[in-house]
Design a protein around this nucleic acid. Structure first.
Length: 828
RNA sequence: GGGCGGAUAGUUCAGUUGGUCAGAACGCCGGUCUUACACACCGGAGGUCGCCGGUUCGAACCCGGCUCCGCCUACCA
């Protein structure tokens, strides 16, 4: 018997499955199903994978990620390939993208770990967790493309001139970040808005004529940075002041008084102070009206000499001191509590401040309409997620700053001429290169001044700068590989919703500029895995589930079963119960197949299971039900609703195949004399075919066990090397048989009546009946005739017939039963 | 402030174009060790489908309003 096993237990160690495989399985399933949102995630699990297609390319090309994002600490490990399969065969990715096509798939990989590993890259700080190495080619590749890309992309220039100013702010952390992220450049996507309590202070400026001008500000520490006062153009109170100047208190210098329609007449006094950069609005006015620049903070967030006597104080103390000084001279009128919105860093929560510094940018603001058009081209699953993309693109206010000042990451392959600062870009042949460690190629000269001394660019790239290249990397675009044309645009990106504004957006933008196409045709947006209480899993909060614990207790397949329970776009709570349900399903599957194999015994070299025999109504019923299940599950997967697909397969397997079909056909093998050889053959053939089909349907969801079963049971009949390269079943339209389904349903309904009666008699369901009599109208008798023998068998009755006087009700109107218990048979 | 999503049995969730759609699983109660499986099988109980209106012959489903939860987004100094 191919399936060993005793006591109905699934074998503990599935052959060939080691811990890594298990790990891959988990990572993959999480990637497939959900973005498990461990926030601040330096994901503990990082696996690499080559995602290069082996055999026939042309299947769906899938890109996936674990949904986490992080500025830096190696967020993911990209995806991995799905479980390598029991015998190291190409992994199956059907759970992600829908149906297996019997071909090897391409799984896109996110390369964030690139920034942390590999020789050519910046060495890691000791405290940064080490990740497994990526293969060198990918590293080189990522860097190589970046080198090209700055040349290819519109608007990307070295040391971009000041017109890129909106994006040109370094956002300086408000203290406390010295360790790893000293001066961290942020981008719009890195900043979150947080409501904070503060005070709104009414402060007197002096007009040129000596009159009092009352302004309201929540940032008094920026008074020395004040470069203008603004009023609304229609505000009659201040008409006389427009075009004049005002004197900044304590610091005694004059600033112009200007107008802007954005000033709210009713807020505070209607007079607004504009500083060297308290917020976006300040930056905007500074840029539009060419205001003076008065930077009062240094890189450490301390007031500088422009703040006079307050120099050296940090922001908090500076604010206090300045308020106190204003009060002393009678120019602080009042301080009222204020709730307002403050930009903070999305990871550490520190408030952010603007600072001017040279950075690398990609200008995206001029391309909003193009990005929106790309978003509209893309098929969104679920559709409503598109709104997030549109809203984000529409709301973009900064260009994309791609340089970061960090200790690790992918370096810009650029040197600057020591004499004139002209950039010198590394030729492709020497990539990857860390310009801080390696000098430019011998003989390199500055194109501008002929200088021969160069300084390496110390900045590294924004995480998204490289991760947005994943489809290009995986299609080997930069190498001119013909593979690119074959698989690009890819079929699908799989990711969670919180990185639509980053990973998805930047990938679309990159693809648009580099290739003038979408990177993929479909995007499937998942939710998050939540903890058992429905909260996002977080390392900080400690409310996460360690996959290895779950795997050790229940197996990787069981964990995967849980994650496959997420409906498209929705979050999924972790539930140990659901994992154990997965385990239960596995056990059931194992046992059901064990039963099936019991009767597949071949004789004299003949594959008995392949003999079609003469199917009865019941055989046709289950085949029809199977075909319907395949049809429905396929539809679900085509819409990326994998959980609905799994549920339907599971329901079919439990409620129809196991609970009814298996129970009904047992008798053909136990009492062969009562059946024709054709009917017995049909049962065997159906068990084989449907059993195999079930294994295939479950394969994307329960990859290890199904593969194990496949190797033992079905492969010997001539299947491919792995169930995971086998084709997803096609719904056999010819098998769909409405009449057989009706009769099957009728049979089961009556059978339930008989089962209920046995339960009431407190005997087990296998207890034989001496006789089963069915009472029903003559018309229904004719209906029932074709399934009568199967009904008899399922009820374990010796005899069956029609008679009046039945008293046991059934679920069918007008059908009653009468039964006589038989003798309990001795155990065979 | 704006937008999106969610609210259905004790619990977690399905409910496709409005008419056997009021479902599944788990849990609970009761029965059964039966030649695949007691990690099982059989049977049973459980819900005004968040609240209020409206459209309709008919609404969990469509429309309006409201409440609560989650997420995204936002220059009111």
């Amino acid at each position: 018997m191919p399936v060993a096993g005793d006591g109905g237990q699934v074998p503990q160690g599935v052959e060939g499955m080691d811990e890594l495989d298990l790990l891959l399985g988990v990572v993959f399933v999480i990637a497939a199903g959900l973005g498990v949102g461990v926030d601040d995630d330096d994901s503990a699990v990082a696996v690499d994978d080559d995602g290069v297609p082996g055999g026939g390319v042309g299947g769906d090309v899938v890109e996936a990620d674990d949904g986490g994002d992080a500025q830096g600490l190696g967020h993911d490990g990209g995806v991995a390939g799905p479980p390598a399969g029991v015998h190291g065969q190409p992994a199956d990715v059907r759970a992600v993208h829908g149906r297996g096509l019997g071909r090897r798939q391409v799984v896109g990989q996110d390369d964030h770990v690139v920034g942390q590993v590999g020789k050519p890259l910046r060495p890691l700080a000791d405290e940064v967790p080490q990740q497994p190495p990526l293969d060198v080619e990918h590293v080189a590749h990522a860097v190589g493309e970046v080198g090209r890309q700055r040349l290819d992309l519109p608007g990307v220039g070295p040391q971009d001139a000041l017109d890129g100013v909106l994006g040109r702010h370094v956002l300086l952390a408000d203290g406390g970040l010295e360790l790893l992220l000293k001066f961290l450049v942020l981008q719009q996507a890195d900043v979150e808005i947080e409501e904070q309590s503060s005070t709104l202070n009414d402060i007197i400026f002096k007009g040129a004529d000596g009159s009092d001008l009352l302004i309201a500000t929540s940032r008094p520490e920026l008074i020395p940075a004040c470069v203008a006062l603004y009023v609304h153009p229609d505000d009659e109170r201040y008409q006389r002041l427009v075009g004049k100047t005002a004197v900044v208190p304590l610091f005694n210098y004059a600033v112009p008084i200007k107008t802007s329609p954005y000033v709210d007449i009713s807020f505070g006094t209607g007079l607004m102070m504009v500083c060297t950069w308290g917020d976006n609005d300040d930056v905007q006015k500074w840029k539009e009206d060419h205001l003076d620049t008065r930077v009062v903070f240094d890189e450490h967030g301390r007031l500088n000499e422009l703040a006079g006597q307050f120099a050296g104080l940090n922001m908090k103390d500076g604010r206090k001191a300045i308020l106190a000084a204003l009060k002393e001279i009678g120019q602080l009128i009042k301080s009222a509590p204020l709730q307002h919105n403050v930009g903070v860093h999305e990871r550490c929560g520190h408030t952010v401040e603007f600072k001017q510094s040279p950075q690398w940018f990609i200008k995206v603001l001029g391309h909003k309409d193009e990005y929106l058009a790309r978003g509209a081209e893309l098929a969104w699953f679920p559709p409503h997620m598109k709104v997030r993309f549109d809203d984000w693109v529409g709301g973009l206010k900064w260009d994309w700053c791609i340089s970061r000042q960090r200790y690790y990451g992918v370096p810009f392959p650029v040197w600057y001429c020591a004499a004139c600062n002209e950039p010198f870009i590394a030729p492709r042949e020497i990539l990857p290169v860390d310009p801080t460690q390696t000098p430019p190629p011998a003989g390199g000269k500055c194109a501008k001044c002929g200088g021969e001394t160069f300084v390496g660019e110390p900045d590294v790239m924004d995480t998204w700068m490289t991760s947005s290249l994943t489809p290009l990397i995986n299609s080997r675009w930069a190498f001119g590989d013909p593979l690119h044309d074959k698989i690009y645009p890819m079929d699908i990106r799989v990711q969670a919703f919180e990185i639509i504004r980053t990973w998805l957006f930047y990938t679309v933008a990159k693809s648009h500029h580099h290739t003038n196409t979408l990177p993929w045709r479909h995007v499937m947006i998942s939710g998050w895995g939540l903890d058992e209480k429905g909260k996002k899993m977080s390392k900080r909060l400690g409310n996460f589930v360690d996959p290895m614990d779950v795997i050790n207790k229940y197996s990787a397949d069981a964990l995967r079963y849980w994650s496959a329970g997420a409906t498209l776009g929705n979050d999924l709570r972790y539930s140990e119960r659901d994992v154990s349900d997965g385990k239960r399903l596995m056990t059931k599957l194992w046992n059901a197949i064990r039963f099936v194999t019991t009767y597949l015994i071949d004789e004299q070299g003949e594959r008995l299971a392949l003999r079609p025999g003469e199917p009865t109504v019941v055989d046709r019923w289950i085949r029809s039900r199977f075909a319907q299940t395949v049809k429905y599950a396929t539809q679900c997967l085509d819409q990326y609703e994998y959980s609905l697909a799994l549920k339907s397969v599971e329901r079919f397997f439990f409620a129809e195949f196991c609970d009814n079909y298996l129970e009904i056909v047992k008798d053909r093998f136990w009492n062969p004399a009562r059946f024709t050889p054709g009917h017995i053959d049909a049962a065997r053939h159906t068990l084989f075919a449907i059993g195999y089909g079930i294994i295939k349907l479950f394969a994307p969801f329960i990859p290890y066990l199904t593969e194990d079963i496949y190797q033992r049971v079905f492969k010997p009949y001539g299947g491919p090397v792995s169930v995971h390269v086998d084709a997803w079943p096609e719904a056999d339209e010819n098998a769909i048989d409405a009449r057989a389904e009706d009769l099957g349903k009728l049979l089961v309904a009556i059978l339930t009546g008989a089962r209920r009666w046995k339960t009431e008699q407190a005997v087990h369901q296998g207890h034989p009946l001496a006789e089963l009599l069915v009472t029903c109208p003559p018309k229904l008798q004719a209906e029932l005739e074709p399934v009568l023998e199967d009904l008899r068998a399922a009820a374990r009755s010796d005899k069956i017939g029609f008679a009046d006087g039945g008293t046991v009700p059934t679920e069918v109107e007008g059908v009653m039963l009468a039964m006589v218990l038989g003798e309990k048979k001795p155990k065979a």
